[in-house]
Write a protein that binds this DNA or RNA. Structure first.
Lengths: 199, 199
DNA sequence: TTGACAAGTGACCTTTCGTTCACTATAATG
DNA sequence: CATTATAGTGAACGAAAGGTCACTTGTCAA
């Protein structure tokens, strides 16, 4: 089927672009990894750049579906421990899911070259996380689990260090285990610092 | 002079690699930006890869000289306000110095491909900053300016968000002003959270 | 059965890449 | 003054890049 190959091409492109970058990827190898010859690719996309644009379209759409809408916000934890657990689950998923890893790498590699990659990178690495945890922390303050404070600032203070550790895992996968332990330690430190003593 | 041109080639390489990446850079343009023809650079470096390696050598040496040694650690602030000022000064410098910006970009673009870039990226973006502020915060705790806590954890919690904002400036220079304000707000928030009330 | 069409092939084209090399100009050295 | 090393030139090379095209194959509707 046409659609099938079209999507397989995008999957292969994600794999190669995330490893070698756009400029470092050639259509020959990309085609070969799909078991076909390079002219076959041009039956589905008119150029290398068209593949790139389609891949970005897909990444943007995926992000919108999974993180863009308000319904997709995570539930507000009922205890500090639940915040730690939720965080660990999210981070554990995001540093082990190959597709998400590759998406982050592509955005990292092309952020200076492509305007849409740049925009998505900022959402993916910064503002999206802040928005998400602003909601979480607002809820936790309402429940009396967190000290009253600027939830946006807390979300920034919480997500940026964790994001840094995720980037570390992408860069040095061997350190993933150690990084996960640091995420947990940081999460508990955060709770200790901002948690409301219920008495 | 031979040395002069050699260094000018490295400077041009830093500029181009940071903008287009290693794979996206070609020797023709690099040479042209120096006002000579491409075969001229081969009088100084035997290959594109040799230029890359020399550039990395230089970046590693530079980092070692300026951030590696214990003497280069910043002075311990005498007041919370001084921490804010010192931070703002450092960040302001690092987001406006073209050479440092380009260095960060190169490390970002080549971190998945080159082992030495990877290593330097982790130092540059994470552990180096943590080490530096571990020293600062240890000193501030000794002076009674900061609540007693794990200084490494505090350094991580302090530098990671700031590092995220620096990366944002690299990615979207138009947001530099806003990012600087966020750095200051975050620094003050940090002081408010961890500062020791002297009474 | 036939015609149309989508998917894939392989040869080929043009451009650009990194690299080489014979050569020139310059300036310091014996 | 003759020599020698250095920096730079310009033409050329082979490899690899992105892309095109005539052609084959398989599928399915009329």
């Amino acid at each position: 089927m046409a659609n099938d190959t079209k999507e397989r091409i995008l999957a292969a492109a994600l794999e190669m672009f995330s490893q070698y970058g756009y400029a470092g990827t050639n259509i020959r190898e990309l085609s070969a990894s799909l078991g076909l010859v390079k002219s076959g690719v041009y039956k589905h996309y008119e150029s290398k750049e068209a593949i790139w644009n389609a891949l970005l379209d897909q990444m943007i759409a995926y992000y919108g579906e999974h993180f863009g809408s308000a319904e997709r916000l995570p539930p507000v934890p009922d205890s500090p421990e639940e915040l730690v657990q939720m965080t660990m689950q999210m981070v554990n998923f995001t540093v082990h899911d190959e597709r998400i890893i590759m998406t982050r790498k592509v955005l990292t590699l092309e952020q200076y070259r492509d305007a849409r990659a740049r925009e998505l990178a900022t959402k993916h690495f910064l503002t999206g996380l802040i928005d998400m945890f602003t909601h979480v922390f607002t809820g936790m303050m309402d429940k009396g689990l967190l000290r009253r404070d600027d939830p946006v600032m807390l979300a920034f203070a919480y997500t940026a260090p964790i994001s840094a550790l995720i980037h570390l895992c992408d860069r040095e996968p061997a350190k993933t285990g150690e990084a996960m332990r640091q995420v947990e330690a940081f999460s508990r430190h955060f709770i200790k610092t901002y948690g409301e003593d219920i008495r």
